[in-house]
Simulated assay, not measured.
Amino acid sequence: MNVDNRVVIPLRAALLVLLAVLIVLQTLSFPGQFAHMAAESPESAHLRWPATALAAFLILCVEVVLVCIWRLLTLVRGDRIFTRASLIWVDVIVWTVAVGWVAFAGAFVYVGINADDPGLPLLMFVCLTFVAVFGLLMIVMRALLRQATDLRTDMDAVI
């Protein structure tokens, strides 16, 4: 068992657990929570379905990123991470993060305009900042991966 397997196998197990939790949140927890909130606060009941749809969409974005990470781990195990195939998965991560960020930013603006208490908008701002940093980090990692892929291609041509 090489070093890659000592990292890849536990990471895949963690990804599976995280994916299972996200599916439960997406299908049971958030829809039930928003239904309960609509029943408790009839003045906000009109937000039940938009909030449910947004939560499901944002969780779907996270699930797509997890699948891409799984695929990248497959490339790591096969010693093919420094190929053009890996760039496709990193691009999907970057675009998924961007789309999710825009959707969440729209919700942030709506909540910020209608908020009585600064707590939720502040929490949403922290989440937006975290996701923006993650997205920018993925762009940098993509550039590094591209450079490493080009170097590996050049080395393979020499050898």
Rank of each mutant, 00 (worst) to 15 (best):
D79N: 11
T96R: 01
A98W: 08
I93N: 00
L123H: 07
A98N: 07
A115S: 14
V76K: 05
A105V: 11
A132P: 01
P118N: 03
V133K: 04
D116K: 11
L72N: 00
M124C: 07
A98E: 13
L122P: 00
V67D: 03
L120F: 13
C68I: 00
I69M: 10
L72D: 02
L87Y: 04
L120T: 13
R80F: 07
D117A: 11
L122E: 07
V92Q: 01
L122K: 10
D116I: 08
I81S: 05
V131W: 10
F125P: 00
N114D: 13
W70C: 08
A115Q: 14
V76L: 13
L87W: 05
V133Y: 05
L75Y: 04
G112E: 03
D91M: 09
D91N: 13
R71P: 02
R84T: 13
V102G: 12
T74P: 06
D79V: 05
D79S: 11
V111T: 07
V94M: 08
A107P: 02
V131M: 14
D79W: 05
W89I: 01
F125W: 13
V111Q: 06
V94S: 02
G135I: 03
F104R: 08
W101Q: 14
V111W: 01
D79E: 15
G112S: 10
L72S: 03
T74C: 11
L75T: 01
F82D: 09
L73E: 01
S86Y: 00
L120S: 11
C127Y: 11
V102F: 14
V111D: 01
R77T: 09
C68A: 13
N114G: 11
F82Q: 07
R77I: 07
F104G: 09
G100L: 00
V67A: 13
A115Y: 03
C127G: 12
C68F: 00
V126S: 08
R77K: 10
F82W: 08
V99P: 00
